[in-house]
Design a protein around this nucleic acid. Structure first.
Lengths: 352, 352
DNA sequence: TTGTAAGCGTTATCAG
DNA sequence: CTGATAACGCTTACAA
C-alpha cells in the first residue's frame, strides 16, 4: 500500500499560477476574497495539475476533522451484522451527511476501547450502550471532545438520547397478560462484558424492571430461571430458548429483549415442534425492519431507531431542543407496542 | 462541537521532561533508541500530563492514515441496513483490525462520489460493486492510492476479488429446473444509477446470463416481462413481485438476485394467498444470515461474503496469492447452492 | 486584492 | 545514544 507518485500540493499550484499558497487556498475556500479572474485562473491551473487538497493537512491546520465517531463496546463484526446498529448508524449517517460530516466507528482495538478512542480522530463522539462501568466516558470527558450518550441512562450526567425502556417493556408484558398469559420466559441481552449483565442501569436491567412491574401489577411473579440471557443475535435467541427448554421451562409466552433474539426464539421453538403463536407467543423489542417480514410477523416494541441516530447528531452539533435546569441536553423518545402476528392467547389457534 | 481546553502536546512533555520533542517521540515509538531510564522518565511525565499523540498530526508526518476506505455508490443509509453489506463490512473490519487499520466508508457526499473520494483520507480503497461506467476508478487510479475492486468483473484490469456469479445463478436455475419448473420470474437488482441496470458486466447482467444459460440448456426461454428489477431490499422484493403479478405473470418459481428481495417476495406472495413453496418456489442469492431464519428457510446461492471482505483487505495489503501474467492479483471465490425449504416441485406440497 | 509568515503536532534526517 | 531542525501540506492572521 505505497503511494506511487507524489501528489500535487498547494505549493505546486501556487508556483504554476505565480501566486502565493494563500491565494490558492482562498481560491477554493473563500473565493470572494480574490478577484474573479484570479480565482478562475488559479482554479483552472489547479484542475490541469489535478490538484486536490490533502484532507489530513487540512484537518491539522483547521484542527477539525469533520468526522464524528460512533463508539461502541462491541466489535465491528457484531456491529455491522446487527440490524439494530445498522438502522441506528443509518440515522447517524443521514444527519451527518447533511451536515457534511463523515463518520468513523470506534470499537475495541486489539481488545482495548481506550486505545481505540486515543487513535480516533473525530470532532465529537456518539457513545452507544456504554454502561456506567466503562472508564471510556471519563477518558472522553477529560479529552474535552464533545460527546453524547445513547441507550445509557446509567450516565444521567451526560447529554444523551434515550427511550423509555421500562415503559416499553411494561407495555409488552401487559399485552401478553391481557391475552391471558401467566407463564413467561424472558430472554435478555448479555452485554459484551459478561460480568455486567445485570449492571444497574443497563438495558437488560431496565427492560426487566418494566416486565416485572407489569407482571407484579397483575399479580404474577417471574418464576426462578425464567430469565435467560445471551448475545443479541438470532443465534443468541436460539441458544437461550433451547437452554431454557432443556432446563424444563414450558412458558406460554416469551418476552425477548431484542427482535433478533425473538427471531431466533421463533426458530428454536419451531424446531421443538411448537407453533407460533399457537403454542408460544413471542414479543420482541426494537421493531427492526425484518420484524415485519418474519412469519408470522413479529409483535414487538417499536422504538425510533433511526431517529435516535439523527437526534444524537443534532445534540452533538448543539441543536438540542430540551435542556434541563442543569444545562444538560437530553432527548427522550417514545416507544410503542406494535401488535402483529406472533402473539395470541395461550393455546390459541393461529390467526392471520 | 468545540474543544474545551488545549490538549497536551509533545512539546509540553518535552519541556516538562527537559528533553527534545524527538526524544518524547522515541520514548513511545522506538524506545530502544533511548536509554532505559530516559524512556521511563519521559513516559511517566507524559502520563502525568495525560499526553496522547494527536492522530492527525501523526498522519500528516507519516503520510499514512492507517485507514482503509470502503467505497460504494450507494448511500450510507442503504449500506448500513443491507445485510449483505453488513457481512461484507464485518469481513473487512476483521482483517483490518488484525492489521491495526481503521476503516472508513466512502459514499456519495451530497450526491457526489467523486467529492467523497477527494475528502477521504485513506491509505487504500476497497471499491464494492462499481460498474465500468463509474469514473471514480479513473480518479482513484490517477490519485495513486492502492485499490481493490469487489463484485466488478467489469473492471478486469484492476486487482479484485470476485465470485462466479454466472455459475452460481446457473446452479440456482438448474435446481428449479430439476424440480420440474418451467415458468420463471427473475427478480433483479437495480443499481443506484438506474440508467445502468443492464450495464454489461454488472451483477444483474452476470446473474441473468447464468439463469438464461441454464434455462436454455433445458430448452426453456424466459418469457417477456419475466424480469423485473428493484432495489436490493426486502421492500424492493415486495414491490417487484407485486408488479410482476399485477402485470399478469403467474410463475411457479422465482429466481431472486438477492436474499433480501427473496424475503420480500416471500411476503408479497403470501399476501397474495400463495403458499411457499407449495404454490411458489423461491431461490435467493447471497446466503446472508437471515436466510436461515425465514419460514420456510430460504434456498439460496451461498457466497462467502465475509471472506470476500477479508480477501479484499489481504489483496490491498499486498498479500494476494493469485497473480496472473499481467501481475494482476485476483481472487476468485466459490459459490454453492444451499437447498433449504423454499423450493419444491411445482404444485408440490409443503415439505418440512 | 494579494502576499508573507506563523502555526498545527508529529516524525524523520542528520549532526553532535 | 541523543537532540536540534527541517519537513509534512494546509489555513489564517497580519502586512503590504
Amino acid at each position: 500500500m505505497e503511494q506511487a507518485t507524489r501528489r500535487t500540493t498547494i505549493a505546486d499550484v501556487a508556483r504554476a499560477a505565480g501566486v502565493s499558497k494563500a491565494a490558492v487556498s482562498f481560491a477554493f475556500n473563500t473565493p470572494e476574497r480574490l478577484s474573479a479572474d484570479t480565482v478562475t485562473r488559479i482554479r483552472s491551473i489547479a484542475t490541469t495539475l489535478d490538484y486536490r487538497p490533502d484532507p489530513v493537512a487540512r484537518m491539522l491546520a483547521q484542527r477539525r476533522t469533520w468526522t464524528i465517531g460512533i463508539l461502541t463496546p462491541q466489535g465491528l463484526d457484531v456491529i455491522f451484522t446487527n440490524p439494530y446498529f445498522g438502522e441506528f448508524s443509518a440515522g447517524v449517517a443521514t444527519a451527518a451527511e447533511a451536515a457534511g460530516l463523515a463518520i468513523q466507528f470506534i470499537s475495541p482495538l486489539h481488545g482495548s476501547l481506550t486505545r481505540a478512542v486515543d487513535r480516533a480522530s473525530v470532532d465529537g463522539i456518539i457513545a452507544v450502550g456504554l454502561g456506567a462501568d466503562h472508564p471510556e466516558v471519563g477518558q472522553i470527558r477529560r479529552s474535552g471532545i464533545p460527546f453524547v450518550v445513547v441507550d445509557s441512562t446509567a450516565l444521567p450526567d451526560a447529554p444523551g438520547v434515550e427511550v423509555d425502556d421500562e415503559a416499553g417493556a411494561a407495555v409488552a408484558a401487559e399485552h401478553l397478560l391481557a391475552l391471558g398469559h401467566r407463564d413467561f420466559l424472558v430472554i435478555g441481552i448479555e452485554p459484551p462484558s459478561v460480568a455486567t449483565t445485570m449492571e444497574p442501569g443497563g438495558v437488560t436491567a431496565r427492560r426487566l424492571a418494566g416486565y416485572r412491574a407489569a407482571l407484579r401489577a397483575a399479580g404474577v411473579e417471574l418464576a426462578d430461571g425464567a430469565l435467560v440471557v445471551g448475545p443479541a443475535s438470532m443465534e443468541g435467541g436460539i441458544v437461550a430458548f433451547r437452554r431454557a427448554w432443556a432446563s424444563g421451562r414450558r412458558p406460554t409466552a416469551v418476552l425477548a429483549m431484542s427482535d433478533a433474539m425473538a427471531i431466533g426464539t421463533m426458530r428454536a421453538a419451531r424446531e421443538l415442534g411448537l407453533r407460533v403463536p399457537g403454542d408460544l407467543s413471542i414479543v420482541g423489542y426494537d421493531d427492526v425492519d425484518v420484524a415485519q417480514y418474519t412469519d408470522p410477523p413479529l409483535t414487538t416494541v417499536h422504538q425510533p431507531i433511526r431517529r435516535k441516530g439523527e437526534e444524537a447528531v443534532r445534540l452533538l452539533l448543539g441543536g438540542g431542543r430540551l435542556r434541563d435546569e442543569g444545562g444538560l441536553e437530553q432527548q427522550h423518545l417514545e416507544t410503542r407496542l406494535v401488535v402483529r402476528g406472533s402473539t395470541t392467547r395461550p393455546g390459541g389457534t393461529v390467526q392471520d
